[in-house]
Write a protein that binds this DNA or RNA. Structure first.
Lengths: 349, 349
DNA sequence: TTGCAAGATGTAAGCGCTTACAACAACCTT
DNA sequence: AAGGTTGTTGTAAGCGCTTACATCTTGCAA
């Protein structure tokens, strides 16, 4: 069935622009102008059209509009998952920004899988989106070529690729992670474990890991292969990873985690082993989602500008769509947030 | 600019179905059939079309398709917020279900505000969505009239309205909340506080409150006006509400909360007062999001079938769209989950 | 061989809207 | 008063696709 038929009722003729024009005693062009560029229509005419629209209950047909104007007023967003609160917040901000400009948001998830992201991307292009928001910058060149050849404005969120010429709205994951590592070192920790999200196709996870690893290395505290666990982003995975790291002969005094969910999972693992946090084990997260302050002790973490990224990406995409020229990328700060899950290292028995 | 022009490059002609037809040596009708109903085209012809499509890099124009087929293959979802993990999960399940059937998801949020929901709804209708998913059942009759008169299939999630003839995919909030109250009573609690989400336009919050209130009343444990706090769904609000309830001369021994976020907030409040949970204060939540097991002690709560609701709503909407007849509503169970945040009431000094 | 049903393809009429261009009116300017 | 602006509206040509219907093949029964 179509949106205008079926259902068992009367055929129910949906009014078209032509019906409005007839009733208002003007041409369809005037109706169209009256609706889209009211300032170009005399007030009296405009009112006549408005009242005809009202009595008929007219709504422009989307397909007709799209076909004729070659614009869908739709922007697509492909994020790894909606389960993580952080993407959800950015998405929400993006949606609000777009809604204010009368643009709707098409949403799809990739589950951190590059091929799924590409499939979703193709679907969105086929849907004729006017612009696209993506997370991160690591993808095969073909993807960027596709986007570029289609001339679809797109924004890369969450990262700050200085080797890519594309519009990005993000922050420096490596630098923020390095700062966490620095703080951990300053508090005297030397035996440190790192719990990371999987790094395939995930530049953020890679950058955070390398930020931590290089900072530790620079300070003579090299991260060995088995000081690092790669896993999915779930409480369970964080817990399992923590148990593994804490089972080692010389137990770490601090666990740096790739995000808050992993950190909360790690806390659960530590608790299972009867370790007091932060007295016997320090834990840090990344993202500063609500979870970070819901757990006890509250998580030391990095505040990521999720809402600002969403809002900014939306505005810049709209700007690009309207102007036809790619705006400049934006780099936001990501602040270190000190809370009680991190404290001085005490000598372990 | 349009999605096909601008950007400073060559005019860059996008191939149309006609170009494909010409190259493949067939008519546009055959190309269309070859793409949409391949079984109605001979294999040889189909291959010729396929290769023409490939060499030209053809993608059907969305506007043309919509206009001619009177279908957008798009479904809209309007949820209160994406910040709450629970809606996010349902949304994700919905999106995956739709994607598998080649339908895309348009998302908007209402911030729990009825007028915002209506505005978003109108936008979606204007976008010609083939179906709509909404949360809850409490809205002015005009909204349902609009939906019905437009003959747009829609599903109400999260609730189970037996007084409404519309398609719903939900669970019994009142019954689940009543069960929580019953357990709390059984453990000997008599001084009980309730922290609820705001109830205006929110039937789920209302149902949960009334389920708890009536169960308590039936057991001679009437909820007084100041035993209840209504607030927004945030950790801070939950914390503030808990502080208020716990400041009363006869402190409650149990706090029943309208959802897990409020419960986690309440835990934070209790902790601030130095109260041990569950020994000095029991707390229960609702929803069973990840947060419930991330906090310590883990929250006693109600498991809401978020993913199943998303999947089912998606399937039923698609079924309705294809068949033209409204499917039967679905009622899922919502199980009580016993965890350590709830324990026996001990006489308070 | 003929006739016919079933299958494959082509023809062409829209779907409802926007917009370039033309037409006209009203108002200045010189 | 003629010519030129500026502002308002109408005319009509598409935008790219689907699909009802017509036409042509093919295969097979009689």
């Amino acid at each position: 069935m179509t949106i205008n038929s079926g259902g068992g009722g009367t055929p129910h003729k949906v009014p078209t622009i032509e019906d409005v024009a007839r009733l208002a005693g003007v041409s369809t062009a005037t109706v169209s102008r009256s609706l889209n560029t009211p300032e170009r229509v005399r007030e009296g005419t405009r009112n006549a059209v408005a009242s005809a629209v009202k009595t008929l209950g007219y709504t422009p047909n989307f397909g007709g509009q799209v076909l004729a104007s070659r614009r869908t007023n739709t922007i697509g967003a492909i994020i790894p998952t909606m389960s993580n609160a952080i993407f959800a917040k950015a998405l929400q901000a993006l949606q609000e920004t777009l809604a204010a400009r009368n643009v709707t948001l098409l949403v799809a998830t990739s589950q951190y899988a590059p091929d799924q992201e590409q499939a979703q991307l193709r679907t969105m292009l086929a849907r004729g989106v006017d612009g696209i928001a993506l997370i991160g910058n690591e993808r095969p060149p073909e993807v960027y070529e596709l986007l570029t050849s289609r001339r679809v404005p797109f924004a890369l969120m969450w990262s700050h690729p200085d080797n890519l010429p594309y519009l990005s709205v993000g922050f420096d994951n490596a630098a923020a992670a390095a700062e966490v590592a620095r703080h951990v070192l300053e508090l005297g920790h030397r035996r440190i474990g790192y719990i990371s999200g999987r790094t395939i196709g995930n530049d953020r996870a890679k950058a955070r890991l390398s930020g931590v690893a290089s900072t530790l290395a620079e300070n003579g505290c090299e991260l060995a292969a088995d000081d690092v666990v790669l896993c999915d982003y779930s409480l369970e995975d964080g817990e399992t990873a923590a148990l593994r790291l804490l089972a080692r002969r010389t137990r770490p005094t601090a666990l740096i985690c790739g995000n808050d969910v992993l950190a909360a999972g790690a806390m659960r693992g530590a608790r299972r082993l009867g370790l007091a946090i932060p007295d016997e084990l320090s834990i840090t997260g990344f993202d500063d989602i609500d979870l970070a302050t819901a757990v006890s002790p509250a998580l030391t973490t990095v505040r990521v500008p999720h809402s600002r990224m969403g809002t900014t990406a939306g505005n810049l995409l709209l700007e690009w769509i309207d102007s036809g020229t790619q705006p400049k990328s934006v780099l936001f700060p990501a602040d270190f947030i000190f809370r009680s899950s991190l404290t001085e290292a005490v000598p372990v028995p």
